[in-house]
Design a protein around this nucleic acid. Structure first.
Lengths: 200, 200
DNA sequence: CGGCAAGTAAACCGACCGGTATATCTACTC
DNA sequence: GAGTAGATATACCGGTCGGTTTACTTGCCG
């Protein structure tokens, strides 16, 4: 299984139960409502934790935002690799297209409001915000993963093809969350197949 | 010149000078900082207007947000149609690809932080927010415009092709703002050309 | 047994949130 | 010249923002 530069992500190992609860509730609160719209008082109340504990564990709201994105990224990568590397041993061409199947199930299950990282970027214009590396890291991982899968197919110009597939991928996420195109992800997969076959 | 369902947008005709100043400054404030991050006091101060005047003219911050997006949409459509329908009379295939040239110049000039409508959607989870129609309207217009251009080429399955181009379009916007792919929009245009030529 | 980390409860900080109040001034129009 | 629309200035509303503080309790571990 190819995990890419997952080593760039440092997950602190032992979280206290209260801290764990905080990170569990912010996943839903931040994704559903946006980051600015959720105050620390709401987080503390929803997690059944006092603000004192919250600040003792994390130090700042920004740190919680960073952890929120890092943990979502871990779940996302596990989902994608789980689908792509699933039981049956598929050929490299099929595995590229499985990326879009992974996206489709992710959208239905966890992503109805679009990409959490794109949404977070919209709310965090500061280039020095501690959560920025998590945002850039997720996108870079998807691109790198696509590049690897494309390279395995032996396609011509794999970097350029991977970039095109990446854009179809991100565009399908936007289109699906906006509900403006029916069957957006399936359509993106069909387009990806065309581009892929033309490069083989 | 084909303007699509622009009639759906009602622009009140006579704005007072103070109101005009408000809408001018929020364009930059909202896009650069996000919507929640900009308070009405900041808007009033930046426009050189009192909060009283602001509320007399617009009634609520949400109404200002709606107008912000509607006015940006007007500028965006004018930019796109201006590029696509420019002086030289191009063929339908070329005009489809000009959409991506329009996007490229727009990104450089006005859109470094990504699509204002996607960003706004990230901050406005309420389906009943008064700005929601402006967001849906912009995306629908782009899709409809692409459909019309594709139809003119005589391509097979124009609706499906337009949907694929739409996703490349949105994905290129995301990729360009994230700066993760070099030459994102140009790459998307190349992929669009491939899909288009395969359907002719 | 002593110490410490983790937790609760609740008040407090200055600043800002969206929105409203009263009162005054100016400029244009019937 | 009276009326009115648009603007000004300024103070205020209750509530929330991110963040801090003090005081006390709990449970584990050496």
């Amino acid at each position: 299984m190819w995990w890419g530069r997952v080593g760039a992500m440092t997950e602190q190992p032992a979280l206290t139960p209260a801290a764990e609860r905080v990170l569990e509730v912010v996943e839903k609160l931040f994704y559903d409502n946006g980051i600015h719209a959720v105050g620390v008082d709401m987080i503390a109340a929803e997690a059944g934790v006092t603000k004192k504990t919250l600040y003792d564990r994390f130090g700042s709201k920004d740190a919680i935002v960073r952890l929120y994105l890092e943990r979502r990224d871990v779940r996302w990568r596990a989902h994608v690799t789980g689908v792509v590397e699933q039981s049956g041993r598929f050929g490299p061409r099929r595995r590229v297209l499985l990326m879009f199947d992974a996206l489709e199930s992710w959208m239905a299950a966890e992503n109805p409001r679009g990409c959490a990282f794109v949404n977070a970027l919209a709310e965090l214009p500061d280039p020095d915000h501690p959560a920025r590396p998590a945002i850039a890291g997720e996108k870079q991982w998807v691109l790198d993963y696509l590049r690897q899968l494309v390279r395995d197919t032996g396609a011509r110009n794999p970097r350029k093809l991977a970039a095109s597939l990446f854009m179809l991928f991100e565009g399908a996420t936007v289109a699906a969350s906006l509900d403006v195109v029916a069957g957006a992800v399936a359509g993106a997969r069909d387009a990806a197949r065309q581009l892929l076959d033309a490069a083989l």
